[in-house]
Amino acid sequence: MRLTVNGRVHDVTVRDDETLLELLRERLALTGTKLTCDRGECGACTVQLDDATVYSCLTLAVACDGAAVRTVEGLAPPGTLSPLQQAFIAHDAAQCGYCTPGQLVAAQALLDRNASPTEEEIRAAMSGNLCRCGTYPKIVTAIRAAAGTESGTAEETIRGA
């Protein structure tokens, strides 16, 4: 099968029981996407599949033939940070960071379909992505900052990519 991941085309042979998450992490070494619940309950494995936001732990790899996948590693070219990633840094929207890749992909997908979401829309769109550190308020702030719906600008960050 052939799929495009973060703009790069991959020809791979997959097992029929292989998940998209396994394909990404184990074959393509894209370990930013995390395995946490393995049953679509937590959102840590969230990736973008064409126009949909999916749990990659529940998505069979074979079903992705011909599809385009975007993971956290594809949010910005290597060595750079997207506005959303910069906002996550500026607003301290990652504590342990384990859920962060899934949060970012879900948030970017939200911004792609709704450039200026309200706080309620953010909460609704993001409530499938669990964070045990409880970073939610900072994530909301970061998304609003990236969307330009938060007053004030993202602070200068000390460390870039």
Partner: peptide, 23 residues
């Protein structure tokens, strides 16, 4: 002062390597 979290860039790019990522 509010120095930004110094490992935040690793966390937002997926580069941060957790035990579950060790190969």
């Amino acid at each position: 002062t509010n120095v930004p979290r110094m490992d935040a860039a690793e966390k937002v790019t997926g580069r941060a390597r957790y035990t579950a990522d060790i190969e």
